[in-house]
Amino acid sequence: MGVTDVVTPVRLEDLVAALAAATPQTRLLAGGTDLVRSIRTPGSEPDTIIDLTGLAEFAYVRLDGGTLRVGATTTFTALQWDPLVREHALCLGLAAAQVGSVQIRNAGTIGGNIANASPCADGATALTALGAEVTTIDGAGTARTRPLGEILLGPSRTSLAHDEAITEFSFPALGPEHRSAFAKIGSRTAVSVARLSAALVVRFDAAAGTLDDVRVSLGAVGGAAFRASRLEESLTRLPADEATAQLFAEGCVAAVQESIPGRYSLPYKQHAAVGLAYDAWNMLALSPPCEPAWA
């Protein structure tokens, strides 16, 4: 039982220095809501904890031209209430608002949510739909930016090196013609791990009354959040009406079925996907609220 050291960098240089000293047994603490419990399990104590919560400079939401930049140590509470997020990435704000409890949202950060790589992570579903890229820094001080999909490899698995920390998420800011939504099915109204989550982004061409730039991401089905590309294509140029809502729901069901064939949870999730899809659709407020056809 070694004694774990905790270092709390407060500037980027300190972080790089800390990362340079990191070993595979080093863990990064980005809020602690998952990590603190796991490191207390005897036998799994890290040699060093790099406490990222001191990096105030990475807690931000900024609009940089057409790009929205979210610092990795931004808490869910900050995201939930941030006006830029509301305007340019509503689905991320909605997802943040549904993470855990107030207490968890106050401590938990978007960087930690991604690095923890839970298949149920609400933040991952939203960022996937937003087409987010992830910027990291490593112990050599090298910054890299790569798509979120390259980071998330599966349950608790990422491509992050042991000396690599997420510093920022960036993605094209949604414009005034865009609408976005996030829906989640848990086992309670509030404070529940997602059993299924979806983020939906569309651009609505008001003149034509049709959708384009459709982006659908599903979470808590399979190892990591993913884009349902075929579904996205099939909805492009369709009118924002009830029939499209139905196609969207059917597409979500198909995506769930393809993602977890034969899985124990499939019988439930394939049906629940219909409800999830309609919840997300109705949140776009592009058509009068609609219900599954069978209802």
Binding site: V6, T8, L29, G32, T33, D34, V36, R37, I49, D51, T53, T77, V102, Q103, I104, N106, A107
Partner: peptide, 16 residues
């Protein structure tokens, strides 16, 4: 409360 915000002190290190 830490700086006025509610947190779970069981999943927060004292150093935080």
């Amino acid at each position: 409360l830490v700086d006025g915000r509610a947190v779970n002190s069981c999943v927060m290190l004292a150093v935080q």
